[in-house]
Write a protein that binds this DNA or RNA. Structure first.
Length: 422
RNA sequence: GGAGAGAUGGCAGAGUCCGGUUGAAUGCGCCGCACUCGAAAUGCGGUUUCCGAUUUUUCGGAACGGGGGUUCGAAUCCCUUUCUCUCCGCCA
């Protein structure tokens, strides 16, 4: 959530930022309510001050066995007014909160201005697209031929978008997850977390899914819980309502989780096979950073994710999202995309964002530095999501005879050098 | 799921029965200063957060898990809710 003081002091800066994001800002409405609320609060605080003084007088009088009924009568009236005012203030506050919680973060000044994904900027392309001297298969054919994934039975169990990994497919998935976690914990200094896969209304509000995007998540209404769309939700909320010691910044967590997304309205194109799923696996990177360091940390997270792809020797590119393509909560965001040779398309496997203090304000996550308290900056990035990684891996490592080579770094995890149908 | 107990500052822990200068004793921790060549020990001082006004300072308000109520006044009384612990039940 945006800082109300910042809105008060620099309304134009905020308006421009939101416009760049393609949002029609309600800043004037916010300012108007804020002004009314503060005015009433001032009046009411004065009344409360008066009441505090008279209450002490009453206390003294009673001790001395004097008559206090006049004071009490006066305070009865005052208290009534205070109560009415407090109710009014509360109304303004919840109105203000509703507006603020529905207002997105504003882009960082370095974020390229643009309207849609067409205006995103390619930062770098790493690795060479492999040239095949035979006609290649796509990941669906490869997965089915080698009995790695049973899409039909997955659909039978839960519907489309719920893949059933079987045999070596299941083991390969597990190998990838373990490989990524091991790299991030041993080489990049992250602490491993295994979080709950459901999160409360409050937690999903911290990270920005609620109140606006509740429809994108699966929910268990009777318990007020949401299936996590990403481990970002539980992991960011580890320090909800806490004040961290500046010595502990940055705090770095990595977590595997299953991710659940409704992906409503996205049927049809680009949903075949593993491209777009209701349930998928992801290893997430989350950092709580000092505000002065957070943009450095963002670059670090991107490079941590890139390390995985480099070690797997897969061609990828890093793009920077333009203001119009930026998500609700983020100020700056890089996506990493893997090359799918069969479809000749780039597939997003990671999204690395700096949310600055946007989530920290919502979740009240702070740090103390020389006796002063500030909001932390939160950042996260996928390191990385498995389904599209699996697509790239199967397609890039396929051989002419239909077998699949296992990348060197995965062999210790997978236990074999190749997948070959008997 | 049933019965009971509890939730207080960074931590531990008083206060709650009997409502009134208690934002909160005490201890630990932390910061500063003194002592010391230095450290330890000791002594002195400081140390919650949020909101508003005014601003190099200060003033006012709020908060004792959350929400509501009673009252001139609530950490303290009442209701409700969440969580934790103990016992029972169920269970991987």
């Amino acid at each position: 959530m945006l800082d109300i003081k910042r809105i008060r002091n620099n309304p134009d800066e905020i308006k421009i930022g939101l416009k760049n994001k393609g949002i029609d800002p309600e800043i004037d409405k916010i300012l108007e309510i804020d002004k009314k609320m503060r005015h009433l609060k001032n009046q009411t605080d004065e009344l409360k001050h008066r009441r505090n003084i008279v209450s002490k007088e009453i206390s003294l009088k009673k001790k001395n066995k004097e008559d206090a009924s006049n004071s009490i009568a006066e305070m009865q009236k005052v208290s009534k007014t205070i109560k009415e005012n407090d109710n009014e203030i509360q109304k303004y506050k919840s109105l203000l909160n509703e507006l603020l919680f529905n207002t997105p973060n504003i882009p960082h000044k370095s974020t390229p201005i643009g309207k849609s994904e067409k205006d995103n900027v390619v930062i770098r392309e790493v690795g060479k697209k492999k040239v095949f001297d035979f006609s290649i298969k796509d990941h669906i054919e490869l997965a089915e031929d080698n009995s790695l994934i049973d899409f039909k039975r997955g659909a039978k169990i839960a519907g489309s978008g719920f893949p059933l990994y079987t045999g070596e497919g299941a083991k390969l998935e597990r190998s990838i997850i373990n490989f990524m976690l091991d790299i991030h914990t041993t080489k990049h200094g992250y602490k491993e977390i295994f979080p709950p896969f459901m999160a409360s209304i409050k937690s999903t509000t911290t990270t920005g899914q609620l109140p606006k995007f509740g429809d994108d998540m699966y929910s268990v209404n009777e318990d007020g819980l949401y299936l996590v769309p990403t481990a970002e939700v539980p992991v960011t909320n580890i320090h909800q309502e806490e004040i961290l010691d500046v010595k502990n910044l940055p705090t770095k967590y990595t977590a595997y989780s299953a991710c659940f997304r409704k992906e409503a309205g996205s049927y049809g194109k680009n949903t075949r096979g593993l491209q777009r799923l209701h349930q998928f696996n992801k290893v997430e990177l989350v950092q709580f950073a000092h505000p002065e360091k957070s943009y450095q940390v963002l670059e670090e997270i991107v490079s941590n994710a890139e390390t995985i792809l480099k070690k797997l020797n897969l061609p990828y590119r890093v793009i920077e999202l333009c203001t119009g393509d930026l998500s609700f909560a983020s100020s700056k965001c890089y996506d990493i995309e893997l090359w799918s040779p069969a479809t000749e398309k780039w597939l997003e496997v990671s999204s690395c964002s700096n949310f600055e203090d946007f989530q920290a304000r919502r979740g009240n996550i702070k740090f103390r530095e020389s006796n002063k308290v500030h909001f932390v900056h939160t950042l996260n990035g996928s390191g990385v999501a498995t389904p599209r990684l699996m697509i790239a891996l199967l397609e890039n490592y396929q051989r002419e005879d239909g077998s699949i080579e296992i990348p060197k770094v995965l062999v210790p995890y997978f236990g074999k050098k190749e997948i070959r149908k008997n």
